[in-house]
Amino acid sequence: MKKILIPFLLIFVLIISACSKGASSTEGSKNESKKSGTITYQSQNGPVKVPANPKRVVVLSSFAGNVMSLGVNIVGVDSWSKSNPRWAEKLKNVEVVSDDNIEKIIELNPDLIIGLDNVKNLDKLKKIAPTVVYTYGKIDYLTQHIEIGKLLNKEKEAQAWVDDFKARAQKAGEEIKAKIGPNATVSVIEKFDKQLYVYGNNWGRGTEILFQEMKLKMPKKVEENALKPGYFAISLEVLPEFMGDYVIFSKFDQTDTSVEKTGTYKNTPAVKNKHVFEVNGSEFYFNDPDTLDMQLEFFKKQFLGN
């Protein structure tokens, strides 16, 4: 009886071992397939099969910084991203593209296209490569980065950055409020193409950091007019009503000082107290991880001196 039992046990062990190796092999194959094949991304317009490891991405909107921060190669970008001086070296060999120039995009042979939902020629773009579009502002700026992380099969990396950034920004916000006072107001004002704009809390230019993470206050006039739409055009005459105790002044033309030379501007408390911090609009325009990290360090330096 014992002689029969021992061979049976050996056979049983061998079967279990073989099954285990088979399962391990199958799991390994699945993981390898994800690395070299495709994944299904649940976009706002439904499931889309995209490369698990995209290598030639075309970005038709302001998400270039999100893609670059996750270490994914870009072959085509929008003109705004290309003109960002911070990215001059990174995007040196990257072509400028638009949704109007289908032929140019075809030449770049992309394996993934990313854009906003107002993109033109969407049907044509989908025939070139898997195309995913987003509605600007439908989700908050940090969730947007995580979504792009999911799209690029790098959700863990995106989530890790978000968690770290929120902690750093909120800590800096507490320190800034302790220094300037809990009731001090901050405005983000921009001069672009001879027009002045004031911004709410979700339109790039550092607004997300100042008002969402740091929870600094904006002037009442800004809250009433710019918070809901995201931005609001103003005239020089009413500028003082929108100037906070502290002002982030975004300019695209650093040589244009027409506003700064006016008495209307010079007589505001923020100017008199040297509480106006000028920034390059071409750099401050975005709200991707690279830009957000830069904005956060700028705010810490200007408000705290470190």
Rank of each mutant, 00 (worst) to 15 (best):
V162M: 01
A167W: 01
V133S: 00
E174M: 12
S61M: 07
E223S: 14
K191W: 06
V77P: 05
K156W: 15
N121Y: 00
Y141F: 04
N45K: 06
P182T: 08
N45D: 00
E95I: 14
L60T: 02
Y265K: 04
K138M: 14
K261D: 07
G244P: 02
E213C: 02
I248V: 14
Q144C: 08
D140K: 01
K177R: 13
L236F: 10
V13Q: 12
Q144R: 15
G263T: 11
V97K: 01
P289Q: 08
P85M: 04
K124R: 12
K261S: 14
V96R: 04
L14I: 14
Q44K: 06
L112T: 12
V279T: 07
E95D: 14
W161H: 05
T40F: 12
M294K: 14
A233P: 04
Y199K: 11
E283R: 02
G305P: 15
V186N: 01
T257Q: 09
V59Q: 03
A18W: 07
L151G: 00
N109H: 02
K228C: 14
T135M: 15
F303L: 10
D245Y: 02
S20W: 12
L196Q: 09
S29P: 12
S282F: 02
K150H: 07
F277P: 12
T38Q: 13
L10I: 09
K150P: 13
D164P: 06
G71V: 10
Q44V: 11
A178V: 02
F249W: 11
D140C: 04
D140M: 02
I113P: 05
E260L: 10
M1G: 15
D140A: 03
V119G: 01
G181W: 04
L304Y: 12
M294W: 12
G115R: 01
I128S: 15
Q170G: 13
V133W: 03
E237K: 15
G46I: 06
T268N: 10
A129C: 15
